[in-house]
Design a protein around this nucleic acid. Structure first.
Lengths: 199, 199
DNA sequence: CAATTTATTGAACAGGTGTTCAATTGTATC
DNA sequence: GATACAATTGAACACCTGTTCAATAAATTG
């Protein structure tokens, strides 16, 4: 690990520039020329590393989805007891951290592609399923150690995930940050209720 | 009412063609030329009715958001008792009808614009708030007539709306329709629980 | 140092973008 | 039936799109 070829560095650099430009201009309005300009390189160099624009988009989405996986892994690494893992995980899911992980505008644009590009649907689907089954497993473990009390942990995992997705979809339509925060707290409380978390 | 000038007919026709093309090609990949081609007219005619492409996008979003308002109005018109209205409304919110109202890919692309275009954010925000306060009022009425039992109808309305948004976000990542349906039913059940609906 | 591979440039490509404008057709109004 | 107005065309605009390709610069290998 650690050793990275020039090629890999450039690739990451390009994906990053793609991401930053997409935040400003929108994912679909971000051309190879714009990315190249922001890096002060030629467009053809980008094509040299990513054979087509599709490949670039794929790389960005892969990067994005990996970030969400990392949140889970971090929560597991940071705490010993399942109880602590669950608590910190839930809190980060309903916090601005989770929201700040990846730009929402870019995320929803990428998500919109799910409906046209089967490959992208698979990517999103896979990650979502991975995260949910990890969470579901955690709930089962917490249930058997008596930390939580819900009837069906599998179902509860579904509910919590829907609630997370919906909450962020929702709060982005609220203009002031105070009501966004308020709504996040409300949703977190509901999530705790759904899984039957004992204080 | 009913009388529609040629101008209005063409405008609606253009927005409809825009929508249909966007379903296939994606909202951002839909050019004026493509819309014109699908209608077998000249691009300049579209500009004649909508001064710019931005105006066209705005018209499409307006049309979309109005559809969601109509679902609410239909539920109110179709039933006399508040209990019936609530039941039918909840059912349509968690059914494929709601989902089929507007193409998801186009919807999420439009939603992504919320993060770049303040005007579009306002539009989405306004409709969302309107729908939620209508729903909140309904819950309050049902609560006082003893049809439901929740502590805070305002909060319950928030929760149900988050759940709806999240559920559709969620199920679009599921590939087979059976599990989509299953998840919709699960979410509806949770919604009924949240508002304390009595069977 | 020479040979080879990789990184990077710059020009060119055919085709698409939104928009403008004058000219033409069609449709009502007086 | 002439006049006014709206609908529609078609050509033109400058600019941007993704991609190709040969040429050059730089780094790596033998």
């Amino acid at each position: 690990m650690g050793i990275e070829s020039i090629s890999d560095i450039r690739k990451r650099e390009i994906v990053k520039a793609f991401y930053n430009t997409a935040i400003r201009e929108g994912l679909e309005n971000t051309s190879i020329a714009k990315i190249a300009k922001s890096l002060e390189i030629q467009p053809s160099l980008i094509i040299h590393y990513f054979k087509s624009k599709d490949e670039l988009v794929t790389a960005l989405i892969d990067h994005c989805l990996e970030l969400y996986l990392q949140i889970f892994e971090k929560a597991y690494a940071a705490h010993d007891s399942k109880s602590e893992v669950l608590k910190s995980l839930l809190h980060s899911m309903f916090s601005k951290d989770w929201d700040a992980l990846f730009d929402d505008g870019v995320y929803y644009s990428a998500y919109a592609m799910v409906f046209r590009e089967p490959d992208i649907r698979d990517k999103f689907s896979k990650i979502h399923q991975t995260l949910r089954s990890k969470f579901s497993l955690l709930l089962q473990e917490c249930l058997s150690s008596g930390i939580i009390s819900c009837e069906e942990p599998e179902v509860a995992a579904h509910h919590v995930f829907s609630l997370v997705d919906g909450t962020y979809f929702y709060i982005n339509m609220l203009s002031d940050e105070a009501s966004q925060m308020e709504h996040l707290l409300m949703s977190e409380a509901l999530a705790l209720e759904i899984i039957g978390f004992k204080k």
